[in-house]
């Protein structure tokens, strides 16, 4: 276990390093625009551009620039080109909003994904399964921005059940909750539909396993066979998906939902950074996101070993 962790953490550092180099190169080599020009503005004099280059270090070599950039990010002093705000501080400020959005949505989508997937599998072929299948497919095919717009229009403007938008801190739980309920639903519907399908098909596979027949042959109740043997052995595909999806979202990937509901989280900041092509911000949010993706990957692998004793962490692939 310890060897596994050490190896995975070293691997994660290597991955983050590679990603940072890649993003750095994409922004500094591929589009041959001059960042100093952008910072100085459209009508800047050549002298002003020169000054900006010196001040921001664009006249240095690329490795030097990379080093400076990374140092700034990791010491929390990195400033955005555009508004000159502290990028790290802005990301940290966004974490509570993003975490509230993602954790709440994940609880909803896991609950419904499991419930619907389980019922579908247990009643496979019956009317309940068919109904849930249709429901899941509708959920999967609804674009998030579309669903969010409909919810906002109907519940916020038409019947004014929920407040318009924004994020309210958890210090006022009622407000926090009422501001988040629509974003949670918007984000969760697609995942709930998808996860229920994945769980259903995984369970149907497991139902054909010999050990499920053994479980029935020893006189276990139908429910016990389904929960302890079928469901228990169907979790790996769902856990795999969840690790990836949740890692992406909590790392700032809920861009559409945060933008539409004006939730000032990491996703919204990512959207702004991308729109303004603000290199330091993009670099920082990319590393932030990559960190969570890598982290959840490691957690998923630990989850595998917990779920299936045949997977021993010491021996698993790096």
């Amino acid at each position: 276990m310890l060897r596994f962790l050490v190896r995975r953490v070293l691997g994660a550092i290597a991955v983050l390093f590679a990603i940072s180099v890649l993003v750095f190169l994409i922004f500094n080599v591929v589009p041959a625009t001059n960042p100093a020009q952008r910072i100085a503005g459209k009508n800047a004099t050549p002298q002003l551009i020169k000054n900006v280059e010196k001040e921001w270090g664009f006249d240095k070599s690329l490795p030097e620039q990379y080093w400076t950039q990374m140092k700034l990010i990791f010491t929390g002093e990195v400033k955005s080109y555009n508004a000159h705000i502290n990028v790290d501080e802005r990301i940290v400020e966004g974490i509570p909003a993003t975490a509230s959005l993602c954790i709440g949505a994940a609880i909803i989508w896991l609950a419904f994904g499991f419930l619907f997937g389980y019922l579908s599998a247990v009643r496979s072929g019956g009317w309940l399964d068919r109904g849930l299948t249709v429901l899941a497919l509708i959920g999967i095919s609804m674009p998030v921005f579309w669903l969010a717009s409909i919810l906002l229009y109907y519940f916020t403007y038409k019947i004014e059940l929920f407040p318009p938008s924004g994020y309210e801190p958890l210090s006022d739980p009622g407000k926090w909750f009422s501001h988040l309920i629509l974003p949670w639903i918007s984000l969760a519907v697609l995942f709930a539909g998808f996860y229920s399908r994945v769980l259903r098909s995984s369970m149907l596979d497991v139902m054909n396993e010999d050990y499920v027949r053994t479980a029935r042959a020893k006189g276990l109740s139908q429910r016990r066979v389904m929960v302890k043997h079928v469901l228990r052995n169907s979790l790996i595909p769902v856990i795999t998906l969840f690790g990836l999806d949740f890692g992406v979202l909590i790392g700032g990937g809920a861009i559409v939902t945060e933008s539409l509901f004006n939730i000032e989280g990491v996703g919204l900041f990512t959207a702004e950074a991308l729109k303004q092509q603000d290199f330091p911000s993009i670099m920082a949010v990319t590393l932030f996101g990559a960190f969570f993706i890598v982290l959840f990957n490691i957690l998923v692998d630990i989850g595998y070993a917990y779920l299936d004793p045949r997977i021993r962490l010491g021996a698993s692939a790096a």
């Binding site: 010999d210 050990y211 053994t214 479980a215 042959a217 006189g219 043997h229 052995n233 299936d308 004793p309």
Partner: peptide
């Protein structure tokens, strides 16, 4: 009846027990 009065074992002991 299953297990208590009539027990059954199967062909492939490799797959007939739950691995977890």
């Amino acid at each position: 009846v299953r297990g208590r009065q009539i027990a059954m074992i199967f062909q492939d002991p490799m797959t007939s027990m739950n691995p977890v």
